[in-house]
Amino acid sequence: MNYFLRKLSFYAVALWAALTLNFAIPRLLPGNPVDILLAKLQQRGETVTPETRKAYALLLGGDTDDPLWIQYWDYLRNLAKGDLGVSVSYYPAKVSDVILTSLPWTVVLVGVATVIAAVLGVALGAIVGWKPGTWLDSLVPSTTLLAAVPYFWLALILVYLLARVLGWFPLQGGYDVVLTPGWNGEFIASAIQYGFLPALTIVLASIGGWLLGMRNMMVSTLSEDYILTAEAKGLSPRKILRSYASRNAVLPSVAGFAISLGFVVSGSVITEQVFSYPGIGGRLLGAVTNNDYALMQGVFLFITLAVLGANLLVDLLYGIIDPRTRARA
């Protein structure tokens, strides 16, 4: 069978399995959305009586009476139509609307930060690996230390130092709320100003992994015969570094990068909590605490699709970049 067809059919099965789990997991949570909603209302000082419970059970719909397999069938059918249902915690907003207002924030912030971390990490790793044993090697323990520190702790320290003490960056939020979101310079400048600190924490926390991986690959690549050959030919060290050593050493990092792009959507829960940043992570947290099944499924679906999509892309790209992966086709 053709390599690409085989990959695609594998991903179709993986997608089905993921969708089924996505349906099952929220339903294993204890509690029900109406009780949580009532508890929330009561927190806001509203009167909660038996009549209130009845009214809201009616309002949010009693679809839980259907047998599970009918719910499952409806779920798959609606998914095929692109209908993710209605969010209970933001009733009557559609899940797709709730997700779409949050998604760009996460994709841009975490996406940009991931790209910066990967590019910087790989570039530094290549340089450090090129000259192992020099003072540059001290970059390895110092960046892995940053990666090893729990992320929220690193983020809180930076918030405290850079936002509270020095006042260089805003403490929380995604933009200055006086401005109107849109494609205008003022708003974009504000969004960049507000996003800088969260992005910095993500870069600092993840750069160590890239650097270490790339450096080690560099070191082992440098002992390959073709590097020796290149040196013997009298090529300039710069050219060897760029065209021979780095290009071969970067392959695992490319794979890692694509996979980490897949986790962009899910990797923002703590960042958003620490910085009160708008985005999908906060929505997911809210959905879980409110037993909002539809919203949870919607967010999980996006995460699943992102991870599967990124993996598929890597697999397909690898087939092109590296002929060895196609060998048994």
């Binding site: 009167t47 009586t49 038996p50 009549e51 209130t52 009845k54 009214a55 809201y56 009616l58 309002l59």
Partner: peptide, 8 residues
């Protein structure tokens, strides 16, 4: 509208 009649 029973669904909004929280006070019965």
């Amino acid at each position: 509208t029973p669904a909004i009649n929280g006070g019965g």
